[in-house]
Design a binder for these strands. Sequence first.
DNA 1: CCCAAAATAGAACACCTATTCCATTTTTCT
DNA 2: AGAAAAATGGAATAGGTGTTCTATTTTGGG
Lengths: 278, 278
Amino acid sequence: MTDFDDIPRDFPGLKERILERAPALPKRLSQVAIYAIEHPDEVAFGTVASIAVHSGVQPSTLVRFAKAMGYQGFSELQEVFRSRLRERILNYDERLEQLRHHAHSASKPNVIFHGFSNAARKSIDILQERLEPGKLDSAVQILAGAETVYLVGLRRSFPISTYMSYAFGKLNIKNVLIDAIGGQAQEELSFATSNDCVLAISFTPYASETVALVQAAAAKGVPIVSITDSGFSPIASRAKVWFEVTEANFEGFRSMSATLSLAMTLTVAVAEMKSRRY
Amino acid sequence: MTDFDDIPRDFPGLKERILERAPALPKRLSQVAIYAIEHPDEVAFGTVASIAVHSGVQPSTLVRFAKAMGYQGFSELQEVFRSRLRERILNYDERLEQLRHHAHSASKPNVIFHGFSNAARKSIDILQERLEPGKLDSAVQILAGAETVYLVGLRRSFPISTYMSYAFGKLNIKNVLIDAIGGQAQEELSFATSNDCVLAISFTPYASETVALVQAAAAKGVPIVSITDSGFSPIASRAKVWFEVTEANFEGFRSMSATLSLAMTLTVAVAEMKSRRY
DNA sequence: CCCAAAATAGAACACCTATTCCATTTTTCT
DNA sequence: AGAAAAATGGAATAGGTGTTCTATTTTGGG
């Protein structure tokens, strides 16, 4: 009679079905639909009675809702909400513990590897939570408006500026990588004007040369975008927009993954914005 | 009477308590302890009856176990197992959906940023699952045994080799970064002998220069360690040890985070190994 | 405006729940 | 070896479970 075996058994499938059918559902049932989507954890763990109270509905309505979605009863639908929780990703501590548990294969290099992987993941998560969307937009606007982007990042940050220079090149965006080869850094930057832009990347301990370059550029009125690790950073104060990136570390070696994600974002977003104004 | 309010309410705390008390527990109770630690999802979702069957124990034993851990009954203990699932981290699809949900702040740059962050995290997860511990150990052994490490990685891989050269320098490990400045790459590598080692990094489309350099080095009997994206890669076949790193991509731009984690691991692990043989 | 159809609330019910209790077995100590 | 203590198995139970059923309300078309 009804749709017989296309019943969602995984959460994304069920969610899709709920969202698709919800608008056509009667009042109480769509009320349940909204509650279920907004409180999936409650649905996974609660009882018919408790969920009914929280969603302002009779217990029988929940059963009718489950049937409207194609299931035999509420329990069957609840199982799908539970599967979602089973599939969740382990959190940091659990990953580390899991590694320690598989300790037979845990030679020192493997421990180091998992340590760095965790630090990288954590750094990215933190940045993803903290990055203010508005800052990103203004930085992209400044960079996309520049005639030439001067990339300043030495020592530990040099791989990042190198990557950006490579990617900008591929994307046909005029840029100069300040590599300080032969001590020519100041001269390389001397061509920059207020129509250009400096993208500076530096972390504690800030390379003195980077700081000097940024100050010189700022004095000439060149707009500056900075990626650094603190508001007290000497390259933050001079910048029009600056990003705070806190990299997690493992045994004292800081990750660079979050910075790299941000760098990739800036390059691609700038290219995307430039391509719009043809 | 009993310990009155130091009852673990979060999973890590409970786990610690179980592991700490398990050895002193009678047979059936420790049987439950083991089952609970090994099948936390079952404990979170199951009923006393179902868990009892799966762990080969009477229902009453589960209640006694919960009391032995300090709780009033099984349900109270189960709540802690459930809290663990609530705190799990969102998976990739959920993160992207969450972003789409917060669509008011989803300017193009922000979408790109979250896309790259997800790609990075995913790449790291995949590598963490697939990397064979043995390979890592042998690679470290080869690199640590080399007099000088020659780092070959151009174009997209150049930031990685640059990073490694910087880190090796800081750690007092003799290395040469082949930067191909002035077309001197072949000459730079010509000093390498079988006592040295080449660490080659290259991904599709393999830079022809990197391939040529690796072949020349291999012909001279220089041991080669490769980081690449497929067993069919021209730099994999010549290598003593090679790593397959599959980077997730966002809108065609591949992440580099997994490669970077691996690179950091190799540098630090080599330094660690060298410092042991004084 | 009325009536048929759909949706809902709420009570009724059969089943399953966690928990308790106590007889029996196992362990521990003298 | 024997007695005391601890641990266990399994039945009993009170309360809660998901589901069904039906009287009542709401909706929507002629």
